[in-house]
Design a protein around this nucleic acid. Sequence first.
DNA 1: GCCAACGTTGGC
DNA 2: GCCAACGTTGGC
Length: 158
Amino acid sequence: MHHWLFKSEPETFSIDALARKPKQITHWDGVRNYQARNMLRDQIKIGDQVFFYHSNCTPPGIVGIAEVVKAGYPDSTAFDPESKYYDPSSSRDKPRWFMVDIQLVKKFPRIITLEEIKNQPELQNMQVARRGNRLSITPVSAKEWETIQRLAKLKQPL
DNA sequence: GCCAACGTTGGC
DNA sequence: GCCAACGTTGGC
């Protein structure tokens, strides 16, 4: 079992929007970056755990946990000319883009902000904390996963 | 709103 | 295959 961090802009799709979905499940569609695509297609499996991260907002940070309930399959928004994620170079025969389905596990009682992550010595190497990181999907180590969960149980940021 | 970092595109 | 130009991401 592996751990991941998925970024989402809350104005586009927040953890509360996920909570309102039927069965609290959503397609993680619209990823149009090859590195992230490869993870969606090849590495992210059913049962993997995901930190839900709010980006491009104040403050950015991890707001909860979701679980992968369906492994990589072709992203159908790429086939839809009406979609803003439409990509004519992706076909059903040869799909270029992939998505997974995730289900909400829980929303944290408080946000673990990017600032708090950066201040935590054990989390110095988290990819999301690295300067210039733009990947919307990144792997999280088991140790990082546990550290974040421990922080989430504290009432106050450290 | 600014801008650094980074990915993609396309001319050559 | 190089690399300048351009577009996007996302923290601040």
